[in-house]
Each structure stands twice: as C-alpha cells, then as structure tokens.
Design a binder for these strands. Sequence first.
DNA 1: AAACCGTGGTC
DNA 2: TGACCAAGGTT
Length: 352
Amino acid sequence: MESEIFVNQLIDWYRHQKRDLPWRHSKDPYKIWLSEIILQQTRVAQGMPYYLRFVEKYPSVEDLANASEAEVLRLWQGLGYYSRARNLHACAKTVASDYEGKFPSTFEELLKLKGIGRYTAAAIASIAFDQPNAVVDGNVYRVLSRVFGISDDIADSKTLRIFEKKANQLIQGQKPGEFNQAIMDFGAIQCTPRSPSCAICPMTAYCYAFNQGKQDALPVKSKKVKVRNRYFYYFVYEHADRVLMRERGPKDIWQGLFDFEMIESSNPKEQEEVFSAISARDSFTVVDYSEEVKHVLTHQRIFTRFLRVQVNDLGNFEALAESRNLRPYQLEEVQELPKPILIQNYLKQEFF
DNA sequence: AAACCGTGGTC
DNA sequence: TGACCAAGGTT
C-alpha cells in the first residue's frame, strides 16, 4: 500500500473512531507515563480501574515517590508483572529527586528511566511532548505487517528495528501523538488479532493481507511459550489472630509480594508425603487441608495445596517465625500486604 | 538474545 | 480445554 494513503485513511478513521479514555484528557507527562506502564501487556478494560485508583491516590509524581514500595505493590495487586510496579515506584523517585518532578521530554532521556523501554519512551515523547518518535507495540506489528505485507518474524529481536524504521517514516509530517494513538486504536478495534473487521475497513482496497487473504498469517510469530508445572505446598501457620507470612525474594515469580511458608518439588507425590509427615507433628493442629488449586501463569502451571495449621504454643509460634524467616501479621495487617492473586483468593475464602 | 515476568478474556 | 493474546521491559 502507498504510505500516504495509509496515513490519511488511518487519521481519518481515528478522528471518527477514537476511544474516549481518561488519560487522553490530559497532556500531563505523569498521567501519560502512568497509563503507559499500566497498559503494558494489559488490556484497557483491565488496566482502567487501576489507572483511576493510582491517579486518585497519587495525583502527582511526588505523591507516588513518597509512598512505600509495599503500598504501591498493594495498589498494583492483581495486575500482574509486578516488576512494573517496582520500576514505577523507582522511576517516580528518580524523577522527583533528579528531575525536579518533571519528566524529561526526549526519547533518549526517557529511555534512561527504570521501566521505560523503547515503546514507552516513544509513547511519552510523542503524546506528552509532540516528539516524532513512532511507537512499536503489538498493535503496530499487526497493522503494519498486514497492510504492507511485512513477513519478518516478530519474535526475532532484530525485527523491532525494521518496524520502527517503517513507523518512523510514516509518522513524518503527522501529529506524533495522534498518529501513534491512531495506529494503536486501529489495531485494537479494527485490525484485531482474530476476526479483524475487514468488512468495514477503509483500507481493504490497498491492504496486502486482505487482498492476499493472509489476515490470519500476519504478523509472523515463531516462538511458542513453554509452560512448566510446579507444585507448591503451603503451610499457613496461625496462632490466635496472627498468621505467619514472608516476602518473596528475587529470581522467581512474585518478587516483593507476600505468601506463606512452603515446600516445592517437581515431584508431586513426594510432596504429599512430606506434607502429611509435617502435618502429623503434635505441637500443631491441622485445621484445614485444601483441595488442589491450579494457578496459571504465562510460563508456569502451579498446583497448590494449603495446609492451615494452628500452632498451639505461642513460644513455638514465635520460634517458628524466627527460624523460617517468617513474620506474624494480624489479619488486618494481612489485608494491607501485597499478595499474589492465588494467595488473595485463598485468604478470602478461608479467612475473610 | 532467548527466556522470563501475571492475570484475565476469548474462542 | 488449551492456546493465544494484551499500549513491553529486563536480564
């Protein structure tokens, strides 16, 4: 397709079809940035309530910078990819302390900040500062690959530059923020991954994929994700109205979030044996043994059981916490801790 | 540079 | 049901 025709059709489509989204009512770089981080790998419908809560609780980047990381993670709870929240907080602190609370206005400077990669730097630079930096996200891969018949494998990291080059040519002479949001809205609403709305698309006369019948074949993406199984056996130790929890560390899922003491092995049968052996100890009273709960992540299927254990003696309880790097929390404090959805669901079912 | 990091929706 | 995907970034 001719580039000029594509851009004209795209902008015309956008001016009629653009979505009314809260972060589009403002050019405040803080709000643009916040919305972009929240929407990474996240649907608008899922991210929307989080955006509204964050803006309400932290109206400015300084407010966010002054919060604790645990508080930010708690507000992020349920959105997933929690490194986004940790980087969000770190970035806010940097902007508050090193940039006088003002986000830098260029692609290169934005790129230096935590959690801001090439996509997000281009989005902020273009939308908040009118810089001509084209974004490349999943929508852009899809739209450009279909319209222009680009068949490079988008799973290959070299391919990003190919699409960036094309998008940066197309954005020339356009309003950068408008162009970027137009192509993403077009991908999200019109040129969707499955069953794109070609019947009502203004591009079909020129679209490579439509004319070749290759909508389903583009974009080309080779890699398939490998999923592994894990087996978690949780011990929920309680005494009076306190429960033992611990913060999860780096190099595994849910860093910075809280869960319980646990044993894990790739062999579920062996786990069952250890689990029942420990549960037989006489200073404990097993209150509940949960059904198997399956929790699915992008690269993992986690099969879990929860053993709810009352520790009869306060001394034992505190010694247990000491020896296992656990901490006792009142149930009200537990509510305030950031937790994976798996743990949140269990607590809700069992305690709240 | 391939692998990893969550959760929810869809077909 | 399982597979794919959703405004990516980091290691």
